[in-house]
Design a binder for these strands. Structure first.
Lengths: 200, 200
DNA sequence: CCAGATATGTAGTGTTCACTACAAATGTGG
DNA sequence: CCACATTTGTAGTGAACACTACATATCTGG
């Protein structure tokens, strides 16, 4: 009985636009005015759909990590730990300098430090980064079990390491590092994984 | 002829307090009210001494990089490229989890992404990080000339790599990574430098 | 002791922020 | 066609922000 007036905008398309604004300006740097303009809607529509600014960020993060999760599945499908690291870091070098997106990574750009009232935003981002790290860790645990990584290697530390390099590359990308520079970093970084690989 | 009323606070002590606030909340997240309270002064004193909020940040960054520069000199004094990397990254693991300071690194926490009107803050931070990278690069160039690094190694890429790892560790530290986790990352990271070292 | 100069504390300034009342518009079920 | 439910656009709301006018206080040089 009575379904109400239908929404006139597509939530996912609007989220993509919001994602870009957060990505470029960070959570605190992004204003509702910028967000609504990018999304092509007015503030009341935003609040009716996403609750508040933080709810919008969470929705954007959900969408970001969902897209990214598909890619991560391809990454961990690489045959060896070394190839996983290389595929991940080289892919990140390309993605973080893709002109179709703002530079860097939303999970870093979103907000490393925030002011009073937004203290949980950095934690929110950290939790999403931790998901990637867990996925890497599981893959490296398997690599060690398969004898691909040497027995003295620590899969947890390796996953942390690759994750840290990825974050560092994201910060570099956001401060105008070019693709070649990021690839150089990735190339060197992979050598540490090689050093823990059997026959490497 | 008439020197005026003397300042009642010590500028460097006040800067240390401001530094901590920027470190913890980022440039945009830090408010003048928080800054003045931490510094123990009133807004007019702040503006008379530092110009504006951005001027205060620059002064805090100057002080931060000055203190850090002393430490970096010790780092590059290590005998080999490998030891330079180890000393730097292990030292960072300790410093970024020192309870005497906010977690992470001011040059990252200060603001990776900022809103309209503060666009140059991220560049300001990036420029300071680049100084460290340059210092590392010079050291690695020397290491290669000395035969400490193998002839196929790229000192520029190596410096970029170590710098990227340091930044990544900073982000990890700010999201509650403990000292042991950072040391693990440092330990793995050093292996990439070892792989480019003569006799490594 | 006085004039010039700078610092300080109080108490604001205008602006921008996230967020929302409200009425009009647009749909559905009976 | 008629309640009813929900969305939309306009136009604000109070709060927080960076920053400052101004009177007072505290110094130096003569």
């Amino acid at each position: 009985m009575a379904m109400g007036r239908p929404r006139e905008f597509d939530a996912e398309t609007a989220l993509d636009q919001a994602m870009e604004v957060f990505w470029r300006h960070g959570y605190e740097g992004a204003t509702i005015a910028q967000l609504t303009e990018a999304m092509g809607i007015n503030p009341p529509s935003l609040y009716a759909c996403f609750g508040n600014k933080e709810g919008l960020l969470r929705a954007a993060l959900d969408r970001y990590t969902k897209l990214r999760g598909v890619w991560m599945d391809e990454v961990v499908a690489a045959p060896t730990a070394r190839d996983v690291a290389e595929r991940m870091l080289m892919g990140i070098a390309d993605k973080q300098t893709d002109p179709a997106n703002p530079p860097g990574c939303l999970l870093v750009q979103g907000g490393i430090a925030c002011g009073t009232g937004s203290e949980n935003v950095p934690f929110e981002l950290a939790a999403r980064r931790a998901q990637n790290e867990d996925q890497l860790r599981d893959r490296f645990v398997r690599a060690k079990a398969e004898g691909d990584l040497i027995q003295t290697s620590d899969p947890v530390a390796l996953a942390r390491y690759v994750s840290a390099v990825a974050v560092g590359m994201g910060v570099m990308a956001s401060s105008s590092a070019d693709r070649e520079a990021l690839r150089q970093v990735a190339s060197v970084a992979v050598q540490a994984v090689e050093a823990q690989s059997a026959g490497g």
